[in-house]
Every structure is written in C-alpha cells, then in structure tokens.
C-alpha cells in the first residue's frame, strides 16, 4: 500500500489537546430493559487499542457511544474533552462502521468525496483529501467503479478512506479487517501501524483476539456490556492462569491417571469421558499443571495417546473472560 499521508495539523479550538483522546466515565446504556453497556470506564490517549468481545458483548454500542450516535444513559463520553454527542466532537474522530451500507449508486471516489463535502470542505479540498485517502487505503485505479460492484474488501477500504478524511487524531474502527483477504489485511495492519506512529489513537474492535494480537499488545475485553479486562495480552494471560482450563486426554488407563491427577493442587475437577479411554480435567493453573504433568507421565508410565486443551486457543481464553462462553 502506498505510504501516502495527510500532513496538516487539525485546528480545533473547542477541544482540549491535553485531554484523553477518548474517555468513558462510568458509562451505562440501556435498550429498554436490556443493558448494552454497563458502567464502562475507559481512557485512551494514543496508540492502538484492541476491543474484543463475543457478538453481543456491547462492542458496537460502545463504539457508537464513542462516535456520538448514541447518548449514554449514565456517565459521560468525551473526545478530547468534547462530549461525543456534540457535533463538534465529530471533527475529532474518524469512524469506520461495521455496517456494510453505502450510497450504492456512487463510485467509491464519489462516495468518499461526498463525505468530504459533508465535512464542510471546499470542492478542491474535498478532491485533494479524497485522492489522498483513496491512495492511503490502496484503492487508486479502482475507486471509479460503482460501489455496488465492489468486493467486501474494497468496501472495507472505502469505509476506511472516509474515516481518514479529516485526518483525525482518534480513529474508531469497527471490525475493519472483516472480509479482507490476507494481503489486504497486511496492508491494513501496516497502515494502522503507520497511523499509530503518527501519535494517533486507534480503537479497533474485533471478535477475534488473534486478529487483534497482530495489531496491538493493548487489549480491552468486553463481556456482557462491561470491560472485563484492559491491558497487555501477557497481563491478561497471567490473569487467566487463575481461571481453570479444560484438558481432554486419551489414555491407556484413565482411571489410574484420574486418581493420580486428583492429588495435584492445580486440578479442580476430573471427568471420565464418554469413550472408554477418555479423561477430561479442569485445571486452575495451566502453566503449573503442565510443568508437573510431564513428570507424572514419565514417572508412572501413563501412556498418553492424545492430549488437547479443549479451550487453549485465544478464543477460549477470551471465553473465560466472557464467563464461560468462547468467541
């Protein structure tokens, strides 16, 4: 992807440049009796933050609160000190929504240019900024076609281009890598890194933790409307060591193994599986358990035929934080 950039500095008299790029203060949002976001406090200044959570966890609600499409019922959302619901805050933020809707009759270029004009730019400014944004997302030469004929990846690029128009310090991207091919993903990842290096704040949502791991070490995990954890992935994994994981084993003698494992302090539960040689163990401290399990296998000649941690994927790690549900 060409490394084009927009170099001017936004001039925003109403905003406070020392204030956090995005600040949620004890924010709650209900949809009738259903709570969408529950007492969320989040403060972002710069760099990339990944927002991860299962479908229905409240990610989109949180992002819509951040972009001023929804108003919090309790608490306050501000962007550089300006209330997010206030239209002036929209000068400070670029938003790439998850929803895949456009003015389909337009070409990609026309769409982005229209969005630029709706930001109050002159025709000349709008054209220049559109050209720059189109170049940034790698759509040069393809942006004159009608949007209705675009692939999912091209549509994602156009959505991202319009988010870049105002050269915002805060970029909020809802599932931006969804539907993009591996090469396109790498382009996007490179672009996100480049934007982050320009001292911008990027909040990127995804329901796949693995996807976000490639982008950032700073993750906020949402579950049931709450921010369940914020921090580096390593920190979250350490946190997870205190939560049990489930291990499935196929052994020559599962009953003897079960008796041995029950004495281990990390094992919190044992089940004999549905098949004759299967054993399922729930383990509290995974790292401590695996360190000892190797020794037990050799010492007691346990003849392990198969071993898998059913939920040892990042999806499962996420699942623990979500209260037992995986991705």
């Amino acid at each position: 992807m060409p490394n084009a950039s927009i170099t001017h500095e936004p001039r925003l008299p109403e905003s406070n440049s020392a204030a956090p790029a995005l600040l949620f203060e004890q924010v709650s949002k209900w949809y009738g009796p259903v709570i969408g976001v529950n007492q969320v406090t989040l403060e972002l200044h710069r760099g990339i933050t990944g927002l991860v959570g299962a479908n229905g966890a409240g990610k989109t609600t949180l992002l819509r609160l951040a972009t001023g499409q929804l108003q919090p019922d309790i608490g306050q959302v501000t962007i550089r000190g300006v209330e997010a619901w206030n239209w002036r805050a929209k000068r400070l933020v670029g938003y790439c929504p998850e929803s895949d809707v456009f003015y389909e009759e337009m070409s990609g270029f026309q769409f982005v240019e229209s969005m630029a004009l709706l930001c109050g730019m002159t025709r000349r400014q709008a054209r220049e900024r559109t050209e720059a944004a189109i170049e940034q997302v790698g759509m040069v030469g393809r942006s004159d076609r009608k949007i209705r004929g675009y692939s999912k990846g091209m549509r994602q690029r156009i959505k991202l281009a319009q988010a870049l128009l105002q050269d915002p310090k805060l970029l909020i991207l809802d599932e931006p890598l969804s539907g993009i091919d591996p090469i396109g993903r790498q382009d996007f990842v490179d672009l996100f890194f480049a934007l982050a290096e320009q001292d911008r704040c990027l909040l990127i949502s995804s329901h796949e933790l693995e996807e976000l791991e490639k982008l950032t070490n700073h993750i906020a995990i949402m579950a049931r409307g709450r921010i369940a954890a914020v921090g580096s992935i390593a920190k979250i994994r350490d946190l997870l060591d205190q939560h049990p994981i489930t291990i499935r084993m196929e052994l020559a003698d599962p009953r003897r193994t079960a008796a041995l494992l029950l004495g281990h302090p990390a094992v919190v539960g044992i089940d004999l599986g549905p098949s004759q040689n299967e054993l399922i163990a729930r383990v509290a401290n995974a790292r401590g358990f695996f360190a000892d399990f190797g020794r037990l296998v050799i010492e007691y000649d346990l003849q392990v035929q198969h071993l898998e941690t059913i939920d040892d994927s990042t999806q499962a790690i996420l699942g623990y934080l979500l209260g037992g549900r995986s991705g």
């Binding site: 001017h8 001039r11 002036r88 000068r91 003015y103 004009l117 709706l118 930001c119 109050g120 050269d167």
Partner: peptide, 28 residues
C-alpha cells in the same frame, strides 16, 4: 461558520452539500 479541520471548512458549506446530495438522491 465553524472552523475546524482547516480555515476553509465550514458547517454552512457542509449543509449546502447535504442539500445538494439529498436533492440528487431523490432522483432515484
């Protein structure tokens, strides 16, 4: 008239652009 991104940007211009865009959309 609200300055924002650049001295040339204005809310009035954005409003007029929306009027123009919307008139065009009703062609369909």
């Amino acid at each position: 008239q609200q300055n924002g991104l650049e001295p040339g940007t204005s809310t009035l211009r954005a409003w007029l652009a929306l009027v123009r865009l919307s008139i065009g959309q009703q062609f369909r």
